[in-house]
Each structure stands twice: as C-alpha cells, then as structure tokens.
Computed example of a mutant assay.
Amino acid sequence: MPQKGMEPYLVPFAGAWTLEPAESHGSHSACNVGADGELDVFDAGRCADGYALGLAVGRRFADVIRSRMRQDLVLLEQLLPFASTAKAAPLLAALQAANRERYPRIGTSWWALPTAAGSRSSTKEILPFIPKEGGDHGREEEEEEPDGDCSDVLIVSDSTAIAAHNEDGNVALLGHTYLVRATLPDGLSFTAYTCAGELPSCAFGFNSNGVAFTLDSVPPVNDEIVAGAIARNFVSRDLLEAKNLEDAMHRICSPGVSVGHSYNLMDVRGRRIVNVETASGNRFAVHEAGATPFFHANMYRHLQVKQVQDENSMSREKRAAQCSVDSKETALSLLGDTADDKYPIYMTGQTLHTLCTVLVDLDKKTMAIYKGNPKNGEMALVLPML
C-alpha cells in the first residue's frame, strides 16, 4: 500500500495495476456539459491527508478511470510499452526521485504505483524520450502528442475582469473528466477540473484563498526538455494550495521543470490576471493582463524558447487578432468561433474536441462552465469562488 500522505488514484495489485471498487465517500452531483457527456462534481469533504483525497477520488471514479485507460492509445501504444524497457528505467527513476523530493506531500508515490498512473501524469516529460521508428529521436517538426490544445482570452479593464478558457483535448477524454472539491487539514479548500486517472488539475481550478488558474500547453522542441526533472502535473496540483498570487508565481517559477507551460493566474480579491510562461532551466516570463484583450493558444507568446511551429495555434491566434473582444459576451463568441474549417477555435473534430468552456469573472467572483458552444451562452454550472 502506498505511503500515507501521498495521493494515488490507482493502487497496485499483484504487480499489475487495478482500481479499488467504488465506495461512497463525500457527495457528488452531475451537470450536462453539451450533448457528449456529463461532468460529475465530487465533493470529497475534509480529507485527513493527500492519500485520503486520492483514495476517495479513485474509489468514486473507478469505472471512469478504467474506461479512460482502456481507450487511451498514447498510454497503451507508447507509454506502457516504453515503460517496460531497460531504456525507460533510469528516466522513470529520475522523474520519481525529483518529484518525490520536491513534493513529498502531494503524490509522488504516484511513481511508485504501476506505470499506468505515473506515465499518464507525466506524458510530456516522457514522450520526447521514446525512440522513434527509424531512429528519428531528435525530430523537432511535429508535436509529440497533439491532444492538449486550449485557448484563453484575458481582459482586465475598468468594466470587465475576466479569463475565458476553452479546455481542449483528445476526443477520447469526453466522458472522462470531473470536478473535484476537497478541504485539506489546514482548512484550505479547492475545486479542480480533473482528467480521469490524473492529479487535479492539468486544466483549471481555484481555491478558497482567492487564487484561480487556467492552463495552456506549449510546445518546446526536444532540445528544450530536461529528462528526469519536475513534471507539470505536480506543479499544477501544488498550485491549488497557493496562498496568494505571489505564492502562486513562486510555486510555478521556482521548480526546475522538465517541460514548459503557460499559466493564467488570477487574484480574485485583487482583481488581477497574469500570464506566466515557463520553460526548463528556471526560465519564465510574466505578462499582466490589461484592457487590451490578450489571447493565448498553445505557443509561447513572450518567453524566448525554441518551439515547434504549431499550425493549429498559429491559425487560432490569427483568427483571434481579427475579432474584437471587449466583454464577456464577445470573449465567449471568440471561443465559440468556427470560421476556420481546419483549425477552429471551438473544436469538434475527430481528434481534438473542446471539452468545456470556462468563464472566470473576477467582479462576480464566479467560475461558470458552459454547455456546448459558448457563444450560445448556455451555462451548465456556476461556482462561487469565495
């Protein structure tokens, strides 16, 4: 059994991976998010430690996690086969050691669990090091895993203070996400959108200290990725415990990360939004949102990093520059835009799909989740943040 104080969702059984049967723990409800599925809201209540939280979530969503793992082709066809090779052993050991040392309370026993859990929580940190057919390990022209695109619009003016976010992902994630609410021993509570079988959250969340965030992946070339360093999902899980905006920035900028990321951080009480781009080598750059709308897709905007030229992101950025955004309604309309047939901002493709759209309103201090295309304005759920 994993060490107390850790945060596993999967538990080992006879040297393989399995899931404990579902049990009643905390409370839950569901809201429809578009015609493709439901979004469960699970309140784990007050948890004695990270282990209790992870176990409660694993029990509640056992069937959903199993289903996601069965359909996850990246896990089944790339991560798990690689994890069983001699070449993978030192990389996985280094990842485990680095993250265990940095985050002893959060869930680094994840890596002591079967590779299904550990590998899927650090996909971007592992995929670049899987040998490619033909020995093309160092290729830089294409992204390793084109299933994690997102779009954000940030505005802070005298009349409007919002962050609007499309959570995009592989279509296989439909029906395999949920919201987790939890209260930690010190009284801090958080709410986090979570992909089945992963740490909360690789997408968006907020806590009772008035810190909120949305996330956008970015595509550094392989030479910019450090093997065996800090994994992004542990950083964002740690971010859920931030005391304030300054502490949030410290948590995402101080670790020596393996792969870069883009964070849209919100100080709900202070009515501030900042975009922070990070990269390996302790590099980061900060852009404070103002009255001029700031659009972020999945390429670095202001940190100088060698990156993959992602046509999808570039097309979305070009389209966003053509649209006028000055309100919640126009921000949602932009995130619902489908003018580009090949690379729409609102995605309903066979591979990439907009799982949900979120609007954080710092004046109302709410996070709203929308059904279907957000330009229709149909809210599925409104969460008070304070």
Rank of each mutant, 00 (worst) to 15 (best):
A229V: 02
D310Q: 13
A229K: 07
N166K: 02
I155W: 10
T366C: 04
I252Q: 04
H261K: 07
S27H: 05
G169M: 08
A116C: 12
T18L: 06
L113Q: 14
M314W: 05
L240N: 11
E145A: 13
K371H: 05
T18E: 07
I252S: 11
D238E: 13
S122I: 00
P12D: 11
G260P: 15
V33N: 03
G50I: 01
L334T: 05
H137Y: 12
R272V: 10
N376S: 13
P8M: 06
A227D: 15
F213L: 02
I130H: 04
A89C: 07
H137G: 03
F42W: 02
H250G: 12
S217W: 11
G26H: 01
G134L: 11
R319E: 09
C356N: 15
D216M: 00
G228P: 14
F204Y: 04
A56H: 06
T278D: 05
Y51P: 02
A203Y: 15
Q309T: 12
P21H: 04
M367T: 06
V276L: 08
S262E: 13
P384L: 01
P293E: 09
R59T: 05
V235L: 04
F206G: 02
D136C: 12
E7M: 09
P200M: 00
A161K: 08
R59W: 11
S189E: 05
T330G: 10
P2E: 03
Q78A: 03
T108A: 08
K375N: 08
D43E: 12
G372W: 00
H287M: 04
R59E: 11
A182Q: 00
R60A: 02
P128A: 06
T108I: 02
Q350L: 05
E144I: 03
R60D: 09
T85V: 12
G148P: 07
M367L: 14
N222T: 12
V221I: 08
P146C: 05
M266T: 10
I345F: 00
P344H: 05
E198F: 14
I130S: 09
Q309W: 00
G138N: 13
K124L: 08
S159V: 04
D341Q: 14
K132W: 03
K4T: 13
Q96D: 11
P146A: 08
Y300F: 12
D168V: 10
P146F: 03
V268D: 13
L334P: 10
W110F: 04
L173Y: 11
A203D: 15
M299C: 13
E133T: 15
T108M: 03
P104W: 08
C47K: 00
G58S: 04
A30H: 13
L55A: 15
L76E: 15
S109G: 14
V286N: 13
I230Q: 09
D340G: 15
T330M: 11
H137I: 01
I126C: 03
A52M: 02
D40S: 10
G187M: 03
N99A: 01
Q309L: 03
A203N: 13
N32K: 14
T351R: 14
D63T: 06
E140P: 12
I130C: 08
A297W: 02
W111H: 09
G5E: 15
A380S: 14
A248G: 10
Y346H: 12
A86K: 11
P344R: 02
S280I: 04
R105M: 07
Y9M: 01
W111I: 07
D40V: 09
E224F: 13
A112T: 14
L55D: 15
E311C: 00
Q322W: 06
E198M: 09
A297Y: 02
